[in-house]
């Protein structure tokens, strides 16, 4: 009896946790967001100028893997790594997105207080090529509502309809641009938000302004599709060449050449040169290159005697 009750309780808890919380994630007003980062703009700018560049290439960034049920705060503070993006040096956080999930939505809320990080979101495919770059046009100010604070918000959808599609977006980088750091966002005064929620006339008071800063805190929520039709399946295009939509085949390293083969081609080139059959020598060098002896052509050039 006791056991049954416990099982029922556990079941109920699982139902509440599993199903109950999922739809709530879709309501922005019910998304609790953290307090905005309290780093003075001046300190943050100095720290950014002094921060070492972490990596030379975009594929070297420290990508942190996240799961399809991720919901958490991305803290881009002065201890975050820095990278020289094309849009300017910036602190960043980089993520490896879930691969074996259904398609999902990413919601980003960059928290605004005295300062706000005006985010850029860069998406990269499996080969670290940029697929999308979201910036000021895509992040819009949404006033505080319910559990959600004042924030610059964006939503983006990541397609996983075909799991093995080489074009699937695999990586997400959150950072800011030099141009954005000079801007500012006008927030809605909380007394006005109260008035609007109740249908009252908002007091005619000036609104607070959040200066754009190099640091900030972004609430990130992933919402995986639940619809059955979004079941991931395998991407096998008919008559695949592996090069659809700009995808490239993975580079296969050439097999190494046996020393005997190498010796044979060099002897044959020597023989052809001795007979002054230059055309034959060239064909042999090409053939050697095709079987993987890249040195054969150099060998030939060294041994040609120009008269």
């Amino acid at each position: 009896m006791r056991m049954t009750r416990f099982t029922l309780l556990a079941l109920a808890a699982a139902v509440v946790a599993g199903c109950g919380s999922e739809p709530l994630r879709r309501v922005d007003a019910l998304t609790p967001t953290p307090a905005p980062l309290e780093v003075s703009e001046h300190t943050a700018r100095q720290a950014l100028a002094a921060a070492p560049i972490c990596c030379e290439r975009i594929d070297q960034l420290p990508y942190q893997p996240i799961k399809a049920d991720f919901s958490g705060d991305v803290v881009i503070d002065t201890s975050a790594p820095a990278y020289a993006f094309d849009s300017g040096k910036s602190f960043f956080r980089a993520f490896a997105l879930p691969v074996d999930s259904k398609s999902f939505e990413i919601r980003l809320y960059s928290q605004a207080g005295d300062t706000v990080l005006a985010p850029s979101a860069m998406l990269l495919d499996a080969d670290f090529r940029i697929t999308r770059l979201l910036d000021a046009d895509d992040f819009t100010y949404v006033p505080a509502s319910g559990m959600k604070g004042d924030s610059l918000d964006a939503r983006l959808r990541i397609d996983r309809l075909y799991r093995d599609n080489p074009n699937n977006e695999r990586y997400l980088v959150l950072f800011t641009s030099e141009a954005q750091m000079d801007g500012q966002t006008t927030l809605v005064h909380p007394a006005k938000a109260y008035a609007e929620a109740l249908g009252n006339e908002p007091p005619a008071v000036p609104d607070p302004v959040a200066q754009h800063a190099p640091t900030g805190i972004i609430k990130m929520v992933l919402i995986e599709d639940r619809v059955a039709g979004q079941e991931a399946n395998t991407y096998v295009p008919a008559y695949s060449t592996g090069r659809e939509m700009g995808a490239t085949l993975p580079a296969v390293p050439a097999p190494s050449v046996l020393p005997e083969t190498q010796a044979y081609y060099r002897q044959a080139i020597d023989a052809a040169l001795a007979e002054k059959d230059l055309e034959r020598a060239l064909r042999l060098a090409d053939e050697a290159a095709r079987v993987g002896d890249s040195g054969a052509k150099a060998y030939l050039l060294e041994h040609i005697q120009i008269k």
Binding site: I130, T140, A154
Partner: peptide, 20 residues
């Protein structure tokens, strides 16, 4: 690399960005 955007797959992906 803006040439990527001109390819149909990326254009489609770009259209999937939905604002709040």
């Amino acid at each position: 690399q803006p040439t990527f955007l001109l390819k149909p797959g990326y254009l489609l992906a770009a259209l999937l960005v939905s604002g709040p």
